[in-house]
Every structure is written in C-alpha cells, then in structure tokens.
Write a protein that binds this DNA or RNA. Structure first.
Lengths: 243, 243
DNA sequence: AATGAGACATTGGACATCCCATCTCCTGTA
DNA sequence: TACAGGAGATGGGATGTCCAATGTCTCATT
C-alpha cells in the first residue's frame, strides 16, 4: 500500500518511518471501518493485537494521534474519533515561536504576517456575507470589551472572540481554527516574555474602529484598519522582544 | 509553576492534562536549558529520572513532540531539537480532510478557501518584493513544468515548487510551510479519492498565465488569475467527491 | 602513516507483565 | 423513582528485559 511510499532518506530515519506507518495504519483503519466523529475505536489491547505490535507501542502512536487531534482518549472509557481540534498546532508553533525569540523573533513576526494577510485579505468576503444578526453579535462582543476595558480587566479572550466572530460569516471552520491557533500562540509567546504595559482603552478603540468600518460595509477601510491593527501588534512584539 | 495552570475541565480529562503537562515540561526544559536547534536532549532514561516518571511515559510524550516537529529522534544516537517541521499538520489535516469527504467534503473545500485567500491576498506583496533573479527562477520552474506537461509526466511536484517560489520573496518560512501543508493535504486527499483525468496542458497554461501577470508586475491580474486557478481546483475536487 | 574491519558502549525501539486510576453502567436499596 | 455503590472494562503508568541502530574506538593490515 502507500504506507511505505514516503521514503525520506536512506535508513537514517527508518524508526520514524515505522512509527509514522503505524499511525497511518490506525488512521486508515478508522477510515476503512467507516468510523465517524464520535465513534469508538477498538481498545488498546485489540488494536495491539490487530496491528501485531505491543500495547506500549500502539499507545505511543495513539498518543500522537491524540496530539494531532485525530482521536480523543478518555481514561477508563475508550478512544473516539475526535471532532476538529487544532491544539496540536498551537503547541508546536508556540514552541517554535519562543525558540525563535531567543534570536531575533523572526518566527513570531512571520506569524503576525500570516495572520495579517489572512484577516485583511478575507475581511471583504466576510463583510459581504455578514448578516444583521452576526453584526449585532459582533457589536455585543465590542460592548463587552468596552466594559472590560473600563473595568481594567484583560481583554485577551474578548479580543479572540471579536476576531472569531468577524470571520464567522465565511463559515469556514478551518480558518477559524487557524486564526485561533495564531492568536493562542501569540498570547503564549507574549506571556512567556512577560507582557509590557497594556493600554486597554487604546486596544478597545482600535477594535471599535474596525467594527465601525465593518458596520459601514466599507471593505477598503476595514482592511486598512485591520492592517494597522496588526502593525500595532507587530510593534508591541518588537518592543517586548528587545527586552 | 505554570504547568498546572491550564485547567480545562473538572477531572474528565485529567489524564490528558497530565500528559500534556509532561510535554510542556519537556519543552520548558529545552527552553530553560538554552538548547537550540540541533542541540541534544538528555537521554530517555535521564529525562525519565529528572521528570520523575517512567521511561515509557516519557517516551509517549517524546513521540508526541517528535510528531509536533519539536524534536528529532535518532535511533541509537539521541534526541535533538528539530528544525522547523510541519509534517504534523499535514497528517492531522489530511485525516480530517479525508474524513470530511465522506460527507460533503466541506473541510477539503475550506482548505482550498484558506489557501486561495492566502495566496491571492499575498501575491501583491510578493510581486513588490520579487527580484529579477527570483523571477528568473520562477520562469525556470515554469519551463520545467511545460516540458513535463508535454512529456506527459505528472506536474504535482513542479506545481508545488511554483507556488513556493511565488512567495519566496516574502521571506516568511511559516507561510511557505503552511502553503506546503495545504498543498500536501490536497494531494493526499486527491490521491485517496483516485484522481480523475487530468489535462496537463491546461494545468501548465494556467500557471503560465499567472507567471505572465507576475512578470508584468500586474498585481490585480495576478490576484485574479490565482483566484481563478483555485476556482478550478475547487471544481475538480467537487467533481471527484461526487464520484 | 593511512585505512578499513570489527568490537564495544550508548541510546532508542519494542514488548510483556503487573498494578493503579478512572470511567460507565447496572444493580440494589431506600 | 432516585440515589448510592459496586462490578467490570478500559486507559494510565512503572519496571524489567531484550533487540536494533549508531557512533566511536581499537587494532590489524597495508
């Protein structure tokens, strides 16, 4: 089959290939048996028997699949095909980001660049597709953010929610997940560095401006303000990275 | 420490939390010890001792970190901090894509949407930053593609290379990696479904048109042609999914 | 002195076994 | 009917043993 088709290099990584092959076999098994999200997998012991490997070995692969968001493991109950879950990317990316910050923080910047491109590039379509209800929802989040800012509470979660709702009209879960990952990674890096002073009022104001442009259906302005929003984030990150 | 700070839910996922915490501890250990890409980690046994868990348990976490592209494991030699590696996302996403194709192929479509947004949104900046040399490089790839098309050879790899080189000027590794992942996932899904007939000449022609717009520094046209390129891909995918 | 074969230590890979922790579900009791 | 608690199943984890791959070092050969 296609399991062994991805030859990477002579035999230097044969172990990795075997291990990866086992993961692939489990995923193929899921697909072949027609299992869907929420369905239960065979038990660890059964899998070990079926795949002809030891239970510990199969467990290593299962843990990987869990980390990749493919399966969900519930102690004492069983294993199940997982719903979409991008936490894997978060951890991996956050690690790379923190690692890079010890140099010149390039990867963290790249992350912002990608997010900026995605968001400012897609805001047009989002505005086109946004319903009145969704707009109202967005405004609700803004009002919560305003209240939080005045109360001196952190805006992080509301910030994420704002961006999530901004692109909800596109009805693209992958996109939402990706943006969520980027946001979390940024937060994690920021937290690891020890955030500098934050101006809550300013933060809320920037989002209000974006909201206004969206409410006015002014795609160009919205895109432009999003660009500036990310420019600001980039500057702040550069500040913090400079220590 | 911050290890136990991420409480998710009562105790239903306590095992996952512990497991995730162990991974985090290992990553933190890498960062705290100032290890950089290529540096060696302690041996499995040492890690197990330091972290106060069994070797099997540590191994499960290490395998996860390997899958996430954080470390590289070399049988008989040791474990090392890995260079950027996004293969993890590929596997996870490809699985989800294939799973979704059994329904209406939504996730595969979402993938195309994101890629379309990213590429057509960033082509402008790429054109701005592209040097003569990079443009020549791009043309070289196109000529190879043309030759391959006339020889009836598959264009897949050259297709990927074209898109990679298109955005090389942005100097954003994360972006390149992401696009690479999307491309691989698309390929994998396509292969899993059994590709229909492909018109190599048409495929090459589309890319020539994009190249021409880029060479002419016509951002609008390039963006438009990229859009259409992806529209084509989307249609083809819909065809195949319909079986 | 240069080279190559082979022994050796180290390290990860795999497995078997044993026991613990947690969950769900069923049963019995109030 | 509601609730408490136990039974059984399942994953979590530790330990020990052996296998396999790798790099290095030694030593004989040239």
């Amino acid at each position: 089959m296609s399991i062994e088709s991805q030859v990477v290099s002579p035999a230097r990584f044969s172990a990795q290939i075997r291990s990866h092959a086992l993961q692939t076999r489990i995923m193929d098994l899921i697909l072949e048996q027609g299992l869907d999200v929420g369905d239960a997998l065979p038990t660890e012991s059964e899998l070990a028997a079926v795949l002809g490997v030891g239970r510990n070995t199969v467990r290593e692969s299962l843990k990987v699949l869990q980390a990749l968001g493919v399966i969900e493991i519930r102690h004492g109950f069983g294993m199940f095909v997982a719903p979409n879950n991008f936490s894997a990317l978060t951890d991996g990316l956050a690690f790379r980001g923190r690692l890079s910050l010890r140099h010149r923080g390039e990867e963290a910047m790249e992350l912002i660049d990608v997010r900026q491109a995605l968001e400012s590039g897609l805001i047009g379509s989002a505005i086109d597709l946004m319903t009145e209800e969704q707009l109202g929802d967005l405004r609700g989040t803004m009002e919560l953010m305003e209240a939080a800012a005045q109360a001196g509470k952190p805006l992080a979660e509301l910030d994420a929610e704002f961006h999530r709702k901004l692109y909800a009209p596109l009805n693209n879960e992958l996109l939402i997940n990706l943006m969520d990952v980027f946001w979390k990674v940024y937060r994690q890096i920021h937290r690891a560095l020890g955030s500098g002073p934050v101006d809550l009022g300013e933060q809320a104001r920037v989002h209000w401006e974006i909201y206004q442009a969206v409410a006015d259906k002014d795609k160009t302005l919205a895109s432009e303000r999003l660009q500036r929003h990310f420019d600001g984030i980039r500057l702040k990150l550069k500040d913090v990275a400079a220590r």
